[in-house]
Amino acid sequence: MSLDELIEKAQNSIDDLINLKIQTLMGSDFKTTNVDGKEELALDTDNTITGITSKINLVDGDITTEISEPFYKNYPELVQFHQSRETQGHQIIENNIKVIGEIIGTVKLWKSS
């Protein structure tokens, strides 16, 4: 791997810092898929909604949550768990955005020198 690849991967990871996606799913198996260049986890099943997905726009504060009724009724503990994951998603961005910017900046300078 080269410095170029490191910069590219790091920048891809943080290109979408505006939208947070928090998912909590119930299933017995999972797979990784590529969605718009991002590697994502998903259930290895044809079921439609099998959990909760929250999409949070950090700029205007819009939150969209999709949840299936059976999931909401049958898995209240996981619903609560999902809320704690939203908090962690926020914290990742809050804590690390400055540091990541510094790393990318230094590596770019390193590359150009």
């Binding site: 996606k21 986890l41 996981l78």
Partner: peptide
């Protein structure tokens, strides 16, 4: 299982709703 991404996205998958397991996690 929980996967944390640098952009703040978090995905969790469970095969059990067991409260003790969730609390441990």
């Amino acid at each position: 299982l929980t996967k944390f991404r640098l952009d703040g996205d978090v995905t969790s998958i469970a095969n059990s709703n067991d409260l003790e397991l969730i609390q441990k996690h």
